[in-house]
């Protein structure tokens, strides 16, 4: 059963066409890794999938919520679709606990005790229970990114989106974040991530999509896409990054 379904999704900034008729489906519990050159539209695609960008054509269906041109009601969708950003984007004025419990509290009306227990649970999941009372600026980049993942998890999303979540981290800190994501994948979370971590994508993802000039240029198993590129564009890209 597909929980993510895109058909002919298009998006332009002014006259600049950024996404061109992107279509794919993703089954529940699977991980899709999107790769491609800078500017190929990966982030834009991800942001369209939880309504941070509007689309001009086509249709997106995420966990049963439809997004079409001019969609306005996004709150229901966003409760089921979490996103984690490259720059973490934690709320700097709130503690780790409050960062995590804010949305369950104000969006879902969760009781205080319950929310605190939830915070402990999701923070334990990312290995940061001990930092529950810290402020974001007291944490390392890797720790902040794990808190951002926990914050997203606290809403119990059905799909999680990750936009280059390790790109801002020092190499020795990327491991801890990738480990958390791998655990999530094993736990059955449906995930779409934009990444430059080719080894990680090959090992953990079920599906890999190669974006080129706003199109989903190639799409298949890691084996197919990364070992047997069908087009010179993907071959060129892989040659440059591997």
């Amino acid at each position: 059963m597909a929980v993510v379904r895109l058909s002919k999704v298009s998006k332009a900034y002014g006259t600049h066409q950024v996404l061109r008729e992107v279509s794919f489906e993703l089954e529940k519990g699977r991980m899709l890794a999107l790769i491609g050159r800078s500017g190929s539209g990966k982030s834009t695609l991800l942001r369209c999938m939880n309504g941070l960008e509007t689309i001009e054509g086509g249709e997106i269906e995420m966990a049963g919520h439809k997004i079409t041109q001019g969609s306005v009601s996004l709150r229901a969708l966003r409760q089921d679709v979490g996103i984690v950003f490259q720059q973490y984007n934690l709320f700097p004025h709130l503690t780790v606990e409050r960062n995590v419990t804010l949305a369950p509290d104000v969006v879902k009306g969760m009781a205080r005790d319950e929310a605190r227990a939830l915070a402990r649970r999701v923070l334990a999941q990312v290995g940061l229970e001990s930092k529950i009372d810290a402020y974001p600026d007291q944490l390392s980049g890797g720790q902040q990114q794990r808190v951002a993942i926990a914050r997203s998890l606290a809403m119990a999303p059905k799909v999680m989106l990750f936009d280059e979540v390790t790109s801002a981290l020092d190499p020795e800190l990327t491991g801890e974040v990738l480990k958390v994501m791998e655990d999530l994948a094993r736990g059955g979370m449906t995930m779409i991530l934009v990444t430059h971590e080719m080894a990680f994508a090959r090992r953990v993802a079920d599906t890999v999509g190669f974006m080129h000039h706003g199109r989903l240029w190639e799409f298949g198993t890691p084996e197919q896409v990364m070992n047997k590129p069908a087009t010179p564009e993907l071959e060129g890209f892989l040659g440059a990054v591997l």
Binding site: G51, L52, L74, R78, N89, F91, V106, V107, M155
Partner: peptide, 9 residues
């Protein structure tokens, strides 16, 4: 963006 994506109004 971060707060919108958490479904805050």
């Amino acid at each position: 963006e971060a707060s919108a994506s958490l479904a805050l109004t």
